[in-house]
Amino acid sequence: MKNLKPRHEVPELRVKTTKGVDYNLQSSKPENFTMVIFYRGIHCPVCKKYLEELNTKIDQFREKGVDVICISSNNKELAQKTVEEWDVDNLNIGYDFSIDEGRKWGLFISEKEKESEPDVFVEPALFLVRPDSTLYSASIQSMPFARPKFDELLKSISFVVKEDYPARGEA
């Protein structure tokens, strides 16, 4: 597991999206941050609820200069099914994120426990990445529970931008 540090460059991130775009984090130039959300996949009801909530708040993040990409290790077919079955039409959904790449990001990896799960998949995480591709903050989970709350993130991002609050935790 890679040890990512705030104020240091994050690993390269390139994924295909259900919108037909090849997403490249390092080419992304948001005003303030890119919020990278890794989710378990279509098999996860907690992910569904989380991304559907984000879908209702995406404009608020954009207004704060935050681009958002949501990524799983699901294949194209499952990612497309996610877009069709979940209320996530405002989100950019990336797919085919490899387990090896997940390890570079320090993500927890799980093996299949139920028939509905893929053989292996990434556990949830949320990263705020600066426009220069350096890590600002990270929340990495080993379970589908206890994820950052979007309303709290929106308030925090307002404070961070207004006060030019530095990334912490790099020592």
Rank of each mutant, 00 (worst) to 15 (best):
G169A: 03
K155G: 06
E113Q: 08
K114V: 11
K162P: 02
W86I: 07
C44H: 01
N24C: 14
S158T: 06
K155L: 10
N75F: 12
M1F: 14
P118Q: 00
A146Y: 09
K2V: 10
Q141Y: 09
S110L: 06
S139Y: 15
E31K: 08
E111V: 12
L91P: 03
T134M: 08
D96Y: 09
K5D: 04
S142I: 05
R103Q: 10
Q60M: 14
Y50P: 00
S110G: 04
S133N: 14
G106Q: 06
K49W: 05
K5E: 01
N92L: 15
P30Y: 08
F145L: 13
S28L: 12
L153W: 02
V129M: 06
D89C: 01
W105M: 07
E63L: 13
T34E: 06
E9F: 12
E170N: 14
E84G: 01
N74M: 11
S98Y: 09
E31I: 02
K19W: 12
T82Y: 00
F150L: 00
L126P: 02
L91E: 03
Q60D: 15
I71P: 02
H43W: 07
P30H: 10
V10N: 00
E117M: 04
S158K: 13
S139A: 15
A79T: 01
Q60L: 15
E115I: 09
Y39L: 05
I69N: 06
K76T: 10
R14N: 14
D87P: 00
E152C: 08
P11Y: 10
S133H: 15
E170R: 07
V46S: 02
S137L: 12
V10E: 00
E152N: 07
K76H: 13
V161D: 04
G20M: 07
N3I: 14
L13S: 05
R130S: 11
D151C: 02
A146K: 13
I93Y: 00
A167L: 00
Q60P: 10
Y95F: 10
E84L: 11
N55C: 08
V21P: 11
K16V: 11
D89W: 02
S142T: 09
D151Y: 06
F33Q: 01
V88W: 09
Y39S: 04
R62A: 15
M143W: 04
F145N: 08
E12D: 13
V83W: 04
S133D: 14
D89T: 09
V161P: 00
V122R: 00
K48M: 07
S156L: 05
N55W: 04
A171L: 12
D96M: 09
F97V: 07
S98G: 10
P6K: 07
P6Q: 06
E117D: 04
V161S: 01
T18Q: 04
C44N: 01
G169V: 03
L78G: 04
I157M: 07
G102W: 06
K57C: 09
K104D: 07
R40Y: 03
F159Y: 09
G102R: 05
N75H: 14
L51V: 05
D164G: 03
K57N: 10
R168S: 15
Y95S: 01
P166I: 03
V88Y: 09
G20S: 05
W86M: 00
N74G: 11
F150W: 08
K49G: 03
Y39N: 02
K104I: 03
Y165K: 05
P30F: 10
G65H: 09
H43T: 07
F97L: 11
A171D: 14
S28D: 15
